[in-house]
Every structure is written in C-alpha cells, then in structure tokens.
Design a binder for these strands. Sequence first.
DNA 1: AGAATAGTGTCTTTCAGACAATATATG
DNA 2: CATATATTGTCTGAAAGACACTATTCT
Lengths: 287, 287
Amino acid sequence: MADESMGMAVALDQDGKTEEEFLSEYDITRYPQPSVTVDNVIFTVEDNDLRLLLVKRGGHPFLGRWALPGGFMSIDEDTRQAVIREVMEECNVTVGDGTGYFEQLATFSAVGRDPRGRIISVAYMTLLPQTQTDYMRAGDDADDASWFSVSGIGTDEIRLTQVIGEDADDEPVTLVIGTGDASDDSRLAFDHEDIVRLAVSRLSAKVTYSCLAFAFLASGQPFTMTDFRHVYEATTGRLYDMGNFQRMFRKTFKDKGIARVVGTTDTKGRPATTYEFVGKQYDIIVR
Amino acid sequence: MADESMGMAVALDQDGKTEEEFLSEYDITRYPQPSVTVDNVIFTVEDNDLRLLLVKRGGHPFLGRWALPGGFMSIDEDTRQAVIREVMEECNVTVGDGTGYFEQLATFSAVGRDPRGRIISVAYMTLLPQTQTDYMRAGDDADDASWFSVSGIGTDEIRLTQVIGEDADDEPVTLVIGTGDASDDSRLAFDHEDIVRLAVSRLSAKVTYSCLAFAFLASGQPFTMTDFRHVYEATTGRLYDMGNFQRMFRKTFKDKGIARVVGTTDTKGRPATTYEFVGKQYDIIVR
DNA sequence: AGAATAGTGTCTTTCAGACAATATATG
DNA sequence: CATATATTGTCTGAAAGACACTATTCT
C-alpha cells in the first residue's frame, strides 16, 4: 500500500503528507481526553511495624475520608515527577531523591472510579527509612496526614490502624480493607483500597527475593541484623528464626558484598555487628 | 479546619459547597489533559519458539516502522477494554475473552515519548495459544502485521526476527533491542523497545513460578509434557532436562490438581501421556 | 534389532525450618 | 551468677541439577 520504495526520500502517508505536515496539522484534542492522576503508597517501618501514610481529604469529592497522597499530573512532567511533587505538596515528604525506593505499581482506569470525570490514576509505591519522614505534615489540600499501622498482611483482610502520638487523646481510626460491610466513613477514598491491597502484596512478596528491605534502613546509619529482621517481619507478617535468618543474611547479602560490616553496638546484651548496604540498587533479585 | 461535628448533615467544603454542588460546577478541562494510549505485547509459542506480534505503521508518526499493536483509549472504556478493541481492529486477534492470559505491565509517561503531543501509554502483555492467532491479519491502520521470533532472552540484547511464510521471498527483518547503534529503520516506533524488554523479562521470570505456561496451550486441546517443556524453554531461553522436568511437573501441577491426565498420544516413539489444565487462573503462584 | 520418544531412579548439592548450643555483654 | 541479646552449629526434609537407566512404540 504505502510507498516504501522511495529510498531516502521523505515518507508520505496515504494523504500524501510528510511527517512534518502531518504533525503540524495534528489536533490531539479532537477526541475527548481523560485526566491523569498519580497516587503513592508510602511505607515505612517503625517499632517492628509496617506503616503507611494517608491524608485526610480537605475537599470534595470524598471530603473527610482518608486517601493516598497524590494528585493531578501536569502536562509538562511525567508520572514519576508528578508523584514526587504531589507528595512534597501534600505531606512535605521527599521521595525519589536517592534515599529509599520508588517503583510504579499499576494504573487504575475503571470508568467511574472518580466522580469528577474520566480520570485514570498511575499508582506508585515508595519505601522510606523512618528518618526521611521526620518533617511530615499535612499540606494545603489535606486536612490531616497520619501514619497507619498495617496488619493482616497475607490475609484477605488488611487492617489500617492510625498511629497517634502519646499526647493526643483522639481515638485512633481503624480502616478495614477486604470486607464489604465496613461503614462508608471508614473506607478509603476512590479505589484506593485496591491500590493499597496491591501495594501490600507486592511489597511482602518482593522483600523476600530482593534488596528492598534495605530501603527502609537509613543510608549512612548502620543497622544490626535484628533491625533487618524486623523489617522482614513487619513487611511479610511472619516471624523469622534468629539463627536461620543470620545464615540467610550471611549467604545472601554479606558474602556477596551487598552488605558490609561497619562496627558493633553497645546496648545491653551481647554487642551486635552493625552493617551498611553497599549494593547498587534495591530492586535487584537475589534469589 | 473542616466541620466534622455535623453528624449526618451533608459535609461542606471550605467554600461552603456540598459535594453535589462542587461536582456540578467542576470543570475537569480547566487544566491541559494528556491523551492515553494502550499498547499490547502479544506472545505466542510455536515450534519451540517464542513469538511476538508487531504491526507496521501505516500512518505518521513512525510511518513504516514496526510497533506494538495499540491505540487511543476511548473516553467511555477502561484501558483493558481499549486493548481488547484495538488489538481486534489492528490485527483481528481476540484477547481477554477467557482463552489465553492478559495482564497490565506498566505505564510509560516520559514527556516527548510521542511526537503527536502529551501522550502516556498503558502497556499490557498477552499470552495466546497458537490456535487463537489463526485469523491474524493487518487491520485498517496498519500496513502489515507479522510475528517476530524472540531470541536473546536473559541477555541485554533481545533480537526480534520476522517469521515469514514459506511461500514469501522477502528477506526477514531483524530488529535488535539493546544496542544503540542499530539504524533507525530497524528500531521499533515510540518507546516500544522499552515495553518489549520489560514484557520479555516479566514473562520469562513469571513462567517459572506461576501457571502462565498453560496459557500458551489451547484449552480443550490436550498437550504432552514435551509440549509444556517447549513453552518453558522458549520463554526462558534455557533448556530443561526431561527427567527433572517430569518430576517438577508431577509435583507442582499434577499432584496439586492443576493439570489432569486426559489420554495418550499415538505419534512415533513411546506414546506420551496428555494433560489438560484444570486450574482456576493462570497467575497463581505455585512456588 | 534399532531408532525414537517417554518416563523413572539415583546421587549430590543447596537451602530452609526447627532447635540446640555457645558467645559476650550488663547488673 | 542470672539475664539479655547475638551468633554458630546440627539435624532434617524438600527441591533442583546431572545423568544413568528403563519403558513403549514404530519400522
């Protein structure tokens, strides 16, 4: 059909147009366009406990409901940049700057998932060391921002329980993901329950065969094997035998040069060897 | 800030609007919107060989270059429906109807990835039994549609070599993904090389710990252990020992009721036991 | 019998879980 | 010494790779 035998000449389409002509006349707005948002499931591990960051919506729709931080992608940025920007705006947390880990999860595109119109959302997952979350606070668009402890990992029913500082006397909120009978107010906004479910299952699977666990431990701050084991336990929802875990750590990380000895602790009990992560990236497969 | 103590009253935002009022006044087109396309990496296994379907672009941009089948998402469908529709339009192949397997890969959103404007693309991967591809032909938007044999799996350099019928006397095209020095004409359109690379690595990893391999074998048409092994070999790029593979198959699939004996073959040599897949879904993890 | 293909058995290594034993600190 | 925490060792069973061996068909 097309004229492919023109050698080095400029290729023309069926209408006899060059690519330059085609593009200059091309009107991308001729068909209705959706909007694109990004959402981010931000995890950290504190006190042997997996936690996830939610913001309370300060505007319609889903006003007052808890939701994942995120927002609209601008026209001159990619989805990754959009997530970084939105998370900074909404919770004052830095992601994607070298500390921690950052990956795309999936895109959610069901018709009707957002009452504002045709909006699809690209979901990301972020793993942060706790030090990276020190300046967290609710931004302009949010009424509140808070960490939720994740329990029920590996089951159908994920529970998110709000972590409240010791001075506050509010009742902590518990959101249940998985049962259909929870009241409206205790449900996440939009389809964010689906996103959280996917993130939790992806995280708990991937931790066991990659270097992701290191992303929860601050770089430049040595950690013990027990610290490392706590990350495994918090993310997978199961307990690990100390002895077997040591053996696994030695073979999988230390002997391969992914972790390096830096010193010892001086807390009570026998001092523990401390390590630092010296691998190139967090998502390499080690098994 | 917000008035949460109103009990069952309708929640009002900072401007005093109800959700209904907010939504009726909301104009989603007030900010520039991107367009959304879908792309599909369609794999099949034939003659102990992994193959992937490409279409030759019949219009600008990238006129005459090979590309993944796909196209624009309509405003009233989700990305999954868009892929199903576009693949039917462009190559007359049915995906997502129960036969074969279908999953989302990732979303590609780099600014400038499409010269027509701000377009992000949601990529999918499809695995089809060969029988499902019988009516494949190029559709309206494409100048050609052809299967390419995938080699170099597990290396940095994936090679796609066009599979040509015996009667044709065209030279088969080879596209090399991974080296920067290939000429322009032998490169895929857009960022489709990145998508193909991701699909191949995802497929070859996932085949070994899930039931994905069964998706390449037609339902209702019994297969032998050798057929099944060929799928593993074609998708992972390595060879499997017959004996060890039999043992793995028995323990992982037969003993667990995922595959069932249906009969024997009557070709030359010792007759082989034939099986059928009786699992619920292809993406369950078996290891 | 010989070729072709299918399937079983054996040996070894690796790895993970259970659990016992030892090491090094503090009070 | 008891207590607390860290680390090593031992046993067992499951799984995978290498490879020898047996089984069933056809010509």
